[in-house]
Amino acid sequence: MSYPRYALVFLIASFAIPVGLWAIERVTGYAPSATILWILPVLCAGMIEGQKFAAATGRTPTGLEAWGFARVATMLAMAISLALAVPLIIFAGGEIRSSLDAVMGDPELRMIAGAVFVFYMLVIFGMNRLFFGMGAKNEMKALARRRG
């Protein structure tokens, strides 16, 4: 497991996917769902790490290895996501700034925002675990097909 590779794939996907969605919208006039913006970076990074793990070890990860990977990968994904959000928060204007000011000024809204953040983190944790294992299983199947 290479956490620097995970972080790099996550970061590249975090930039490439919005550009790709923007290009799709410009070319076709169709705006794909923005939900994919936070799912695909985790999917790409987790699957690639699972594939690399299986290729290097010749096996799928144990449950303990997969959960350990998910824990560290989730911390990386959250750190990168927050680092990407900070400039938006600092330099935000207009509606974004007024929304942020409203959330920060209301204790109840801060609690809701915190709960959403925890929920987001739990979903990312589960997705990292799922896609890491899935990537390893897919790689093991591919290795078996290559062997004949």
Rank of each mutant, 00 (worst) to 15 (best):
A144C: 01
A45C: 05
P32F: 00
M134D: 08
P61I: 07
V123C: 06
R26S: 09
M111Q: 11
L109E: 10
A55E: 10
V72G: 02
E139D: 07
P4A: 06
R97F: 10
L76Q: 01
M111I: 09
T28N: 09
I48L: 12
Y6W: 07
G46N: 11
Y120I: 01
Y6R: 06
G68M: 01
Q51S: 13
M78A: 14
E25G: 02
L43Y: 12
L82I: 15
G63W: 06
A136T: 05
V123P: 00
C44Y: 10
I39P: 00
R71P: 00
A144N: 07
G105I: 05
V27E: 05
M111C: 04
M1H: 11
V123I: 11
Y3K: 10
T57N: 15
G114S: 13
S81F: 08
W38E: 04
K52V: 14
A92E: 08
P61Q: 13
Q51W: 09
A66D: 03
V103N: 09
V19A: 13
I39E: 01
A113N: 05
A136P: 00
M140W: 09
V19Q: 10
A13S: 14
F117H: 06
A83S: 13
V103D: 14
S14G: 14
L82A: 15
Q51H: 02
K137Q: 10
I112W: 09
L8F: 07
I12F: 04
P32G: 07
N128H: 08
R5M: 13
Y30G: 08
A83W: 02
R145H: 08
G46A: 13
I96W: 04
L109R: 15
E49N: 12
A23I: 00
Y120H: 11
F132C: 07
I80S: 09
A102G: 08
R145Y: 07
A102I: 04
P107C: 05
A23M: 01
F117Y: 12
G46K: 03
R146I: 01
A7K: 02
I80D: 02
A13K: 05
C44T: 09
I89N: 09
S99K: 12
E95G: 07
A115H: 05
K52L: 15
E65Q: 14
